[in-house]
Design a protein around this nucleic acid. Structure first.
Lengths: 344, 344
DNA sequence: GATTAGCACTCAAAACACGCGAGTGCTAAT
DNA sequence: ATTAGCACTCGCGTGTTTTGAGTGCTAATC
């Protein structure tokens, strides 16, 4: 099972895969022979038999054509794939959608996801990284009604979070401003998780120093950030899953996939690995991080700005996926979002 | 086709419906005879024939049992239904979930939707009313980085909206405060759409009076509220749709339903009518406001606080839906959310 | 007069049989 | 090394039969 195939075998493997991607049907030697010119069906059959021995192809049953195995797809993606350039119109659409909004408000990122799912015919998954790892630009406190306080945190990236803190009576406007400034100083430049631990630390200190206001500030903000908020998760174009014959055939599997999409944690897990890597990553079938879904593939990429992670975006579909179109799509989108946020 | 059936016919209709709700299979005279005691299959058959003439039952084909028509379900819901009390555990779960958060932050409402979909086995749809029709409690402006301004609008209901306004340089802290106060005065007590038109109006005035700051304020806020933001829309428990045999059988239809759920506007339309009514509303089959989906039912209710609409929540499923469980579920939830927000 | 037992009839769905044809593997000729 | 030829396999679609749940009607019964 050498990792490298001779030219002809590679060619055959490629054609099998490309045909299979289009038709979702096992492909036979006759079809290939026509498409390759040169070789006769019989020869092709021999080559295919070899490829089957090597584990790149498989037969659903005797007397059927061959279909690529996961290993086959892997080989294809690693060595054979020719990336198809994006169409000008695709690039334009993506850029227009991305450019329309402020630096990445929810709605924009969502629309990009939707567009991407349309262009690719797959489901699109976006995870906006938990703001825990983004640096804060500042914190403000606002009065919101008599007993409530609104805490607004702005991230360096332009992302905004707010928390409504209930039942915090007896604070004057002055108090609020003091507390706000104190927190703002404390927070600026830190990430949320750093802030959280800093707050705990300070709380011990301040108690002893007996500064009412500061203690109050800390108590308040620890109520606002009790725990790391999971990042936002969007799934767009779920219905595309239904366009895939291999999924529709088996309703049971279909259910599993759609259920999985409802589970935030699963979606996050799906894109997990990509966050570290930086590169666009292709997980084929069982390679993907969610063992419950052994027959889907994920093409995903991290979104980042100035090297700090903003989240990740991925296209999810059947193993039989048009990688040569989809990989460039994801890459371009990730690059684009990265550079859009790149300005300061 | 008199709207009122004699006791025995009503009884039969009820049993047919209840059996059909459970099994999704046509129900025959034998089964009913057993369940009713008393009457023999032959008698039941006669009654059923009558009910068919009246349009409440139908036969998929000769030699099959009967299934209820939409009219049959309508009659059932209007006259025959016995609401099943919620279990204590269901009430507890709902209240716990609702109580956990601040007054209705997104995440809480989402979780309620999810829980509701779980309890009901249907898909749950929540539309948070566009804030256009909610009264504002106040507006604040915040500096967010050098060139950007963050506008935070707090609604009476506790709902918070924020907009990041880019590229608004050259405003001092003082300016910002003045502008903020001015806007706050202008806005408090108005709804967003009222504010929008008021702003347009004021803009014409102020221009002539040549007050730089105010003009600035108005320009700024008209950038922040360029158009009515559609309310947030959540769909939870989509996968439950796949649990319904009548949907799974026909993949084509399934696609249509799931596609519809991706379309924000369709979801909104689904709950449209309920907003005015106030009452919990049941739309059976073709009665629902979305003609593209003639074979789903919606049980929906408005969410409101102090009489002003906050949004609406609905359970969506097949016409063959367990109304006697689902109607109380929706009603209870709507009531609960209403009263939670009721405190000032 | 309402109810019921009995019976012939209907029809969808399951079970079975069967031929077609795409596709294979092998062998022998090129 | 390639290819033509051929026998063989087996899934799929088609047509046929069987089965059984359920009906409508009629005549007997309470």
């Amino acid at each position: 099972m050498s990792p490298v195939l001779d030219d002809r075998a590679a060619q055959v493997l490629r054609l099998v895969i490309e045909d299979y991607i289009e038709t979702a049907e096992p492909v036979g030697s006759r079809t290939l022979s026509k498409r390759m010119g040169q070789l006769s069906p019989a020869t092709i059959r021999n080559i295919m038999a070899d490829l089957e021995d090597s584990g790149y192809l498989a037969q659903p049953h005797t007397s059927a054509g061959r279909i690529p195995t996961a290993a086959g797809f892997r080989y294809y993606v690693d060595y054979l794939l020719e990336r198809r350039q994006l169409l000008r119109s695709e690039r334009d659409q993506l850029q227009r959608t991305a450019g329309a909004g402020a630096p990445l408000p929810d709605e924009t990122i969502r629309q990009i996801g939707r567009l991407l799912s349309q262009l690719s015919g797959q489901a699109c998954v976006v995870v906006v990284a938990s703001p825990d790892n983004q640096k804060l630009r500042g914190i403000r406190l606002l009065r919101a009604g008599r007993d409530n306080v609104l805490l607004v945190a702005v991230m360096q990236s332009g992302w905004v979070q707010h928390r409504l803190i209930e039942d915090e009576p007896g604070l004057t406007e002055g108090d609020l401003e003091k507390i706000g400034n104190y927190l703002d100083n404390l927070a600026t430049g830190l990430t949320l998780s750093q802030l959280r631990s800093k707050i705990l630390q300070e709380m011990r200190h301040e108690k002893s120093r007996y500064d009412r206001v500061m203690t109050r500030a800390l108590a308040l903000s620890s109520r606002a950030f009790p725990d790391s908020p999971a990042g936002e998760v969007y799934v767009e174009g779920r219905a595309n899953i239904l366009e895939q014959p291999e999924f529709v055939e088996d309703v049971h599997n279909l259910k599993r996939i759609l259920r999985a999409f409802e589970e935030k944690s699963v979606v996050v897990r799906l894109l997990d690995r990509v966050l570290e890597g930086g590169e666009t990553r292709v997980s084929i079938g069982t390679e993907n991080p969610v063992e419950e879904l052994p027959d889907i593939s994920v093409v995903a990429s991290a979104l980042q700005k100035d090297g700090s992670p903003l989240g990740s975006i991925g296209l999810v579909g059947p193993v039989r996926m048009n990688y040569s179109r989809i990989i460039p799509l994801v890459e371009f989108t990730a690059g684009m979002l990265g550079s859009i946020n790149g300005h300061r």
